[in-house]
């Protein structure tokens, strides 16, 4: 097989265009008995904040047709614990490491970025301005181009690492936010974070999630994610990482045709711990079937 699968994002070469969606595999350790994430172009960690975050009360998830709602609330042990416990693990892995960072304000984000840069072992940072499940530092940033720009700029000044900004679909104009992140120095964009949603228990007549609202993910949101990638592709020049309900190689190809340089697999892990491997196989099969010599040919090819 001589077909080229590698892509380059923010100067970092990925051996193939597949990574994990932040928050779905933690730091990869728990899934490592089931799947070898070093086969992927990159491994994306769960969100890391400057101080430990407790996360939300339970229930934190609710299933929905073709998807699920989550309101985990970015539970994490903080950047110091992350550097102690997870970075040494990442250093042993032969794949690009992306650490997702979150914060309550621009300085908070920058602080996490600085500490991770000093620690080493991280290839790229993904700025999470779009989590719908936390009171501060949540989706509000990604709904405001000025706030997005301020955070990305602050992180840009704090680190030389390539930056990916993860955007929310819960906006009026994704193009406007995408441009703000690009202007502020983001090297790439991740689209999309989850869609703000609710489910109600008809027996108790109360919302199922303790947090009331949560983020919808899974195949149910895929066409919305594709639309966001499509619109962002028209708006910016920086590479896009597409995500939202990818289960198969065909789904991944669709995202690339819409304009994504790479894709992330998230909720699919819960349905199949080896989902990323099946996506990779499916992409290779597609390339062979259609005589695609270089995966980069697919990027934005539907436009």
């Amino acid at each position: 097989m001589n077909n080229n699968l590698s892509v380059t994002i923010g100067g970092v070469e990925w051996k193939n265009p597949i990574t994990t969606a932040s928050g779905t595999v933690n730091s990869g350790k728990e899934y490592s008995p089931y799947v070898d994430f070093t086969q992927l172009g990159a491994l994306t960690s769960k969100g890391v904040s400057s101080e430990p975050w407790l996360g939300n009360p339970t229930p934190r998830i609710a299933e929905s047709y073709g998807g699920m709602l989550n309101a985990i609330g970015l539970q994490n042990a903080g950047v110091a614990a992350f550097i102690e416990n997870d970075i040494p693990y990442f250093k042993k892995l032969d794949t690009a490491i992306i650490v997702n960072i979150c914060g309550r304000d621009a300085e908070d984000f920058a602080n996490v970025a600085r500490k991770l840069t000093e620690a080493g072992g991280v290839d790229m940072l993904e700025i999470n301005v779009s989590c719908p499940n936390v009171k501060e530092g949540g989706v509000a940033f990604a709904q405001d181009p000025k706030a997005t720009e301020a955070i990305v700029s602050a992180v840009r000044k704090a680190t030389p690492l390539p930056l990916i900004t993860k955007l929310s679909p819960n906006v009026t104009s994704i193009a406007e936010i995408a441009k703000a992140a690009e202007f502020a120095g983001s090297d790439a964009l991740s689209l999309i974070n989850t869609l703000l949603a609710i489910r109600i228990n008809i027996h108790t007549r109360k919302p199922i999630l303790a947090n009331t609202l949560g983020g919808l993910s899974g195949p149910a949101i895929r066409p919305v994610a594709l639309r966001c990638v499509w619109q962002a592709y028209k708006a910016v020049k920086i590479p896009l990482i597409g995500m939202g309900g990818i289960l198969t190689g065909e789904d991944a190809v669709e995202f690339m045709l819409a304009g994504a340089t790479a894709v992330a697999v998230g909720t699919a892990h819960f349905l199949n711990p080896r989902a990323t491997m099946e996506v990779l196989e499916g992409m290779v099969n597609y390339m062979e079937k259609y005589g695609v010599k270089d995966i980069n040919e697919l990027i934005g090819a539907a436009h």
């Binding site: 595999v25 933690n26 728990e30 899934y31 089931y34 407790l54 339970t58 229930p59 934190r60 989550n70």
Partner: peptide, 26 residues
């Protein structure tokens, strides 16, 4: 018992409060 998603410890959906010194943690 708690609502689970991944069931292998990765997604942090099914947490319970456990004593942690003077405090608690999920």
């Amino acid at each position: 018992e708690e609502h689970m998603a991944c069931s292998v410890g990765a997604c942090l959906a099914c947490v319970v409060k456990v004593k942690d010194g003077e405090n608690w943690a999920y």
